[in-house]
Design a protein around this nucleic acid. Sequence first.
RNA 1: GCCGAUGUGGCGAAAUUGGUAGACGCACCAGACUCAAAAUCUGGCGUGGUUCACCCCACGUGCCGGUUCGACUCCGGCCAUCGGCACCA
Length: 822
Amino acid sequence: MLEKEYYPQQIEKKWFDIWEKSNPYRADDNSSKPKYYALSMFPYPSGKLHMGHVRNYTITDVVARFKKAQGYNVLHPMGWDSFGLPAENAAIQHGANPETWTLDNIAYMKKQLKMLGLSVDWDREVTTCLPDYYKWTQWLFIQLYKKGLAYKKTAPVNWCDKCHTVLANEQVIDGKCWRCDSEVTKKNLSQWFLKITDYSEELLKDLDLLTGWGDNVKTMQSNWIGKSEGAILKFKVKEIEGLEIPVYTTRADTVYGITYLVVAPEYKDIEKLTTPENMQKVQEYRENAKKLSEIERLSTERIKTGVPLGTHFINPFTGRVCPIWVADYALVDYGTGAVMAVPYHDDRDFDFAKKYNLPMIQVITGDDFVDGKCYTNKQGKLINSAQFDGMRADEAREKITKFAIEKGFGEFKTQYRLRDWLVSRQRYWGAPIPVVYCPKCGAVPVDEKDLPVLLPKDVDFKVQGKSPIETSPTFKKAICPVCGGLAERETDTMDTFVCSSWYYMRYSDAKNDKKCFDKDLVNKWLPVDQYIGGIEHAILHLLYSRFITKALRDCGLLDFDEPFKNLLTQGMVLKDGSKMSKSKGNTVDPDDIYKNFGADTARLFILSDSPPARDFDWTDAGVEGCYKFICRVYRLFSKYQNQIKLDYNFDFSKLSKKDSDLVRETHIAIKKITNDIENEFQFNTVISRYREFTNSIYDYIANESEINYDVLSFALLTLLKLISPVCVFMAEEIYSSLGGADSIHNISWCKYDDNLAKTANITLIVQVNGKIKDKLEVEADLSDDKLKELATSAPKTAEFIQGKTIVKTIVVPNKLVNIVVK
RNA sequence: GCCGAUGUGGCGAAAUUGGUAGACGCACCAGACUCAAAAUCUGGCGUGGUUCACCCCACGUGCCGGUUCGACUCCGGCCAUCGGCACCA
């Protein structure tokens, strides 16, 4: 029996306990049904769920439940991105053990997720900080190493002093650390990299295959990869026989306008290129450049500086001899580290030449050319460029490069902005990089049978200035797997983004202790059909995962090219106009919502007001509104629980108008809700339909004596099924109280009859010259001629037509008639 | 500077192929129920004009222009907000 009023706490507790015991949402590896893989970005176990999590996982859960009801074999897993600095910082600050801290948080948050009613297959739970997972992260690292995709090199890398570790390029946001927001400096260190640049072109090109991704994310990735097509041109140094300076340019069409050349302060040949009399000034300049922070140096606002080296180069096109300068607006790690300067046609060169009084030569002109101003139009015509005069700039670019190739001082070159992924971290709480250093054999990967390389427990977290892992008295000692001699273990751990770049593959075979995953299983379940998470991973996680997928494909471990077929980036959860955050004090604790209104209310509300991709504004009034709606639905069922028939039966042709109208409303509701879910998961309109349909049912029952209980049963049970993916606890409670044998969540999705999914009458709009003059209630599906006749003879239209000539009449079936008169 | 997204009532928003702009909700107002309140149910709710009122008329989807019988929707040109990239040669 249903209670008269709705008590969410009791109902949700009851089903929480039942589902806890049965784990009813196992994905079946052997099912013959088509598979559907619904995936949420897994959480970092920071302590408690926040509303962003609630939104993310509710959306994915409704998708998973909808697809299951539609007959798919659904995989909807969950896990924990559980390595990373917060655990280590807790250890440093409160003396906690990072592992205990992390596992405690996981236990708490797991319970919160279960209270949210997620249809997750908990048998496949993955925890990246546990050895049964990171063993395989290490194993994958070794496969990449063998394939030449993991390597160690000394390079200027990003260093965060506060986090005391290096960072990947992707983790430096506006010159600051992505985690702690402190300024990042450059350090020259020997570090491990993954060769993502081998895949630059494929990562860019395959964005076109990702038709289920938003343009925003694809554009961000494309910007980040930063492809540019140009040429390398080589210039001979006048003073030094045999020395050449190659430059990279996308504007080969401007070579006749070169008046100087700039090298970066870190340029490799810079000392050779400096004359003794300039040496002191050049060295001073370089020292100064080193002191500047990345932020200062990359600021476009800054006034450009530089000093001449004293040497010169010969422009092979013109034979002109021009000076070589050092200036920090040339970047050592892009192109060749040297830039040809064409002041008249490049803003930066223009500023620089003005400041130091360097000559300018105009070589491009056009209608919009203004004398004395830098002219960067790429459609202009060449002048002062010998045989290339009169050509359009974009054509000349190719011709001039070809000319340079023929003469042996140039080549075409495609350049990418993307850099290799720096993956080593000087921190404790991560997967140890499985490498040992042997005095004889150098850096050697650990023998695969010796994996995992376990994190040592005998460490001191309070140590300053180095990784806690270094304080272990035992960890470093190792035997070289090649020669058997004494060796030293690598103490760096991996970037957590390595762990998270393959977790969604592990779900396909989460408990396998022989392999990272079975090839057949990973090929069966992946690619992910729908991935849902925050936009903040547009570059980081999503780019890394795409790279790892392609790399593992090339290692022969799987057979697909892209990991995520469809991607939904959900908007933020706001309150009072800004993002919920502890510092602003505008957070809402999911536990409080569970306690006061129940998880079903939280789920309904978080889906209700905005489409998933847009930001969502949390309001207390909105939550209450949703709670009231759930009560309103519940009351319908509790009121008629004795009349509702699970085996309802009626003959549509014999129904009264009122009954048949409700049947039609029911079919319309099924159709619209199904379409709205399938069309980009527009849950906000889905919920509007729930309300509309519920309002229709309330209208229907207004007169008790006219109720046909078979028709009412049909409508109510349909509503219950339609609402069941969102209000999971209430739907289950009602259905089981009505005597349903199975769980409502195991019942197939409702079908609709297209002939019944429309109203019996329509409102015909009558326009004269495009202005609405009348609205007529008429039978649906009348012929065009009949509609025309009805419209012209309508009394209100008559006065507008009278005395005028009808030029034409436009009929839109079932909608409108427009009479055009003169 | 380049690229992407967005722009509709007091607020969140809706609107197959161009075809009733504002569905659904929040807030607000009124009525019913009640001794009263809450809850619940019913109705109203873009702006301006006109009217005792019903009606009716004009305007209205960031701005300007165009195509069309008809434009939130298509085209051209702007503006604003948010986000990404950026001394990348």
